[in-house]
């Protein structure tokens, strides 16, 4: 596990920055909840007057005046987009960076099989995603306690689990991409995260585009649906399938490719 430890160490600073940024922004939102709760009448009117955007952001299916409803919208968006960006950046860089900066020659002339390299790098990415999500959950829970709210573990658990699945799915796809690319992998990863997010907004805007929920992992992270109907396991299973495709592609290609 030498390479796994090395990868985790190399990604440590980025992980700390992302975890504290996402956690900090979520905490700031949680601390605003008591004030927002007091202005529910105005806020409700404002959201109702946003037309199609109300549906696009899932505001029509949530009670903004409750802590879980508020959390699902405000913190959900931060964790959704921030977590997706972290996961795609970490996964898309992990294999590609070795060739980009020239360390692949050093690494792959040691007695480690390519399969071992892929496995340990993948494990390192997954562990970093897990650590980020646990850190963010702890920060959010402590923030809720600080404003005197009971922690709705059930709702929070479901929301965070959906976002964890989203990040793992995107990481798998970007990991596969990372095996092919030498340059620009991080930009491609960020593009995938942003693209997936906007596809979900489009899917929420029109019934004709609803099928896009099967394409973007943000489809199973809609707070309104999760709080009212629970987790959408079939979409999440589809996400795991995409994760699997990305990983199998990474092994298949990286084990055979020439390293320049």
């Amino acid at each position: 596990m030498t390479l796994f430890r090395h990868e985790v160490r190399q990604g440590r600073l980025s992980l700390v920055i992302w975890a504290l940024t996402i956690g900090g922004l979520m905490a700031a939102c949680v601390f605003l909840f008591p004030e927002m709760k007091g202005e529910m009448g105005q806020v409700g009117e404002m959201f109702a007057s946003m037309g199609a955007l109300t549906a696009a952001f899932g505001l029509d299916r949530l009670n903004y005046g409750t802590f879980p409803g508020y959390y699902a919208i405000e913190c959900g968006n931060i964790l959704g987009l921030g977590g997706a960006m972290f996961a795609t950046m970490a996964a898309s860089a992990t294999l590609a960076k070795e060739e980009k900066v020239g360390t692949a020659e050093f690494l792959l002339t040691h007695p480690v099989s390519r399969a071992q390299v892929v496995t340990e790098k993948l494990l390192a990415v997954l562990v970093q995603i897990l650590v980020l999500n646990l850190t963010v959950l702890v920060i959010a829970a402590l923030s809720a306690l600080a404003i005197g709210e009971d922690i709705p573990w059930g709702e929070l658990g479901k929301l965070h689990l959906a976002y964890l699945f989203l990040q793992i799915e995107l990481a798998g796809v970007c990991f596969g991409l990372s095996a092919f690319l030498r340059r620009g992998s991080m930009g491609a990863g960020l593009g995938i995260a942003a693209g997936a997010y906007f596809l979900d907004l489009i899917a929420n805007l029109s019934e004709k585009a609803e099928w896009l929920h099967y394409v973007t992992p943000f489809g199973y992270t809609a707070g309104g649906d999760i709080l009212s109907e629970g987790l959408n396991w079939s979409l999440m299973a589809l996400g795991i399938l995409w994760f699997g495709v990305g990983i199998v592609t990474a092994y298949g290609w990286y084990l055979r490719k020439s390293i320049h």
Binding site: H6, Q10, V101, G102, T103, E105, F106, T109, H110, P111, V112, S113
Partner: peptide, 21 residues
């Protein structure tokens, strides 16, 4: 048998690039 080969070989590349930090 790349892995077995590399266990018995020491290699110095013409350009040495290492991990920063």
């Amino acid at each position: 048998k790349t892995e077995e080969i590399l266990a018995h070989v020491g290699y110095l590349p013409s350009e040495t690039v290492f991990y920063p930090g």
